[in-house]
Design a protein around this nucleic acid. Structure first.
Length: 109
DNA sequence: TGAATGACTTCGG
DNA sequence: CCCGAAGCCATTC
């Protein structure tokens, strides 16, 4: 591989920076990395992050707080349980009070 | 080289 | 917010 390792690394770094009990969106991360428009690649990077470990991919959701990535986790409800364990309310694969839990790297950093 | 794919986003209805 | 369609960009075959 080693094709775009830098991009993955950046995404992983930001993912690790996400505060406890907070969530963010793929687009927000992409924009923060200057890769605005490559939100899909953020998800792709997350897929690779599964191998990296220590990357809270469960804190990264789509723009409406939908756990779009839960399907890529081992179990069916693992992602939701992880979020709930952090105090994030999740209902029907969607983050409740998403607006208040949203963590914007371009803003917070 | 080109076509298909995807853990997204945005716009119009 | 739901639905359909188009745009984007890196990776894979």
């Amino acid at each position: 591989m080693k094709t775009s390792d830098g991009f993955f690394t950046q995404v992983h770094e930001v993912a690790k920076l996400i505060p406890y009990g907070r969530v963010t969106s793929y687009g927000a991360i992409a924009r923060y990395l200057g890769a605005a428009g490559s939100a899909r690649m953020v998800g792709w990077a997350m897929n690779a992050s599964s191998k990296d470990g220590d990357v809270p991919a469960h804190r990264v959701v789509n723009r409406i707080g939908l756990l779009s990535g839960k399907h890529h986790f081992d179990g069916t409800n693992l992602m939701q349980q992880l979020l709930e364990s952090e105090g994030v309310k999740v209902k029907e694969h969607k983050v409740q009070s998403f607006e208040s839990l949203f963590w914007d790297p371009t803003k917070e950093l």
